[in-house]
Design a binder for these strands. Structure first.
Lengths: 249, 249
DNA sequence: CGAGGGTTTGAAGTGCATCAAATAGTGTGG
DNA sequence: CCACACTATTTGATGCACTTCAAACCCTCG
């Protein structure tokens, strides 16, 4: 197969792996070995990939759909760590945590994923030091991402966090009028940003009043992205446009 | 011991490096090479090691004193990332960030540190794949630590966060009566936990009322650590006792 | 059309921040 | 050893942001 399963319209394991940055440095044989051990799987909305502390034999790459990473407290509260879209990797750090997943993962809508044995990843790291280095790099990048996340949660208001979220899904070098489509439920975005749905709704209105964006259901329109960035980024230590930190797990 | 500078009472670079976990896998020659390129330096209270986005030529290991890592927003707000004590490493991830420091660092009291050229670290990573692997491991561990931090900030109350902080500095397997000495200013602890000094003071009183701990200045005494953990850990997804995640940068 | 989810709005409560001021603690010079 | 200056900490009063609970609205889809 060149790159498509003609029957499903889904890319082949090898072609999926090929577009994930951390595998860039892998040789063809490396990649094909990995692909041979991988499997395309389907998870319907609400299905759980794994729970925090489960034994980890596979990690995943999102091919289609959205995946929620989260942790739950004894109180029954849920902390959403991230919502992942296409080409994001999850569960791979289990290899550094006693082969247990450090968070839970659930399909928030029907998903196609590539599942890969963690064992194959471990072998790859040991065998290919350039790959290990790339992995370190990705880890460092994600770490910075998290530091920013911590900062946002403590310094930004709800409205600013929403603005920041919109900036991240907007084309960052955009000029003039922009139209953004919210990628998933407002309720889920709220959870992702660590606030209640009610707060999200009200804060979005406040953001509209402050920045002149226009909201219509899941579509958000604005004349100039800078209205948003001057409102949101003043409470952030990174300068706009922020480097894109999204393409990592 | 052979490894002490008799004149200063400060350990030699080699002996400092030897007790840092990530260097465990280094060979003697590796370690001595690193030590030869390192330098003991003194920073008085308030002195800045570096600012966020500065060009990074050195990373550091805390030998004595306390170091604050933080970032500042345009608004002038400060987000404290961490307070580091002896044997903690900082600034090393600059090698993955364009040789720029991803945060600012300042001595919160008179400090002795070991400064090491980042170049030497890079060489070590490339030359010693086992070391690279260890670094990955440390990175993964820190990442989990951060995930917990994010969770704490969104799900725990101020009083619970303080309790959690106390649990982390207490001997975790302790039984019966315990006495803890706060390691630095209450104001600084407050900043570390993302709250105002006033809030810290009030929340600490609340914690006392709820858990029966006794507070006297910087000393905190309790009869059973479990009073604290049942109060604080109910809003956390990790079970007490939490794994010790402190010995990482 | 009606059921059920997602979303918004209203009213009230809670927790933390803020501003102001009192108090305790620490180090200094006399 | 004491008085003073200065800082850390606590306390009080008030305000704001977010949450909570309740109910309405809206949209989609059978």
């Amino acid at each position: 197969m060149a790159s498509q399963h003609s029957s499903t319209g889904i890319a082949s394991p090898a072609s999926i792996l090929a577009r994930i940055p951390i595998f860039d440095v892998c040789s063809e044989p490396n990649l094909h070995d990995l692909a041979a051990k991988s499997m395309i799987r389907y998870y319907e909305k609400g299905k759980v990939f794994f729970l925090s502390d489960d034994a980890a034999d596979y990690f995943y790459i999102v091919v289609k759909g959205w995946v929620k990473l989260f942790r739950e407290t004894l109180d029954g509260e849920q902390a959403v760590i991230d919502i992942l879209s296409q080409d994001h990797v999850f569960g791979e750090t289990s290899i550094f945590h006693n082969h247990e997943y450090p968070y839970s993962a659930e399909a928030v809508e029907d998903c196609t994923v590539l599942s890969i044995p963690t064992k194959a990843l471990e072998q790859l790291i040991v065998a290919n030091s350039e790959f290990a280095l790339g992995m370190l790099q990705a880890m460092a990048k994600y770490r910075k991402h998290q530091e920013r996340e911590i900062e946002h949660r403590s310094l930004q208001s709800a409205a600013q966090r929403i603005g920041c979220f919109l900036l991240r899904i907007a084309p960052q070098n955009a000029h003039g009028r922009i139209n953004i489509h919210l990628p998933y439920d407002k309720t889920l975005i709220a959870a992702r940003l660590g606030m209640q749905p009610e707060t999200f709704s009200r804060a979005l209105n406040k953001l509209r009043d402050e920045t002149g964006i226009r909201i219509n259901g899941a579509s958000v329109e604005m004349d100039d992205i800078r209205h948003l960035s001057s409102f949101s980024c003043s409470a952030c230590s990174s300068n706009f446009p922020c480097e894109d930190l999204s393409k990592n797990d």
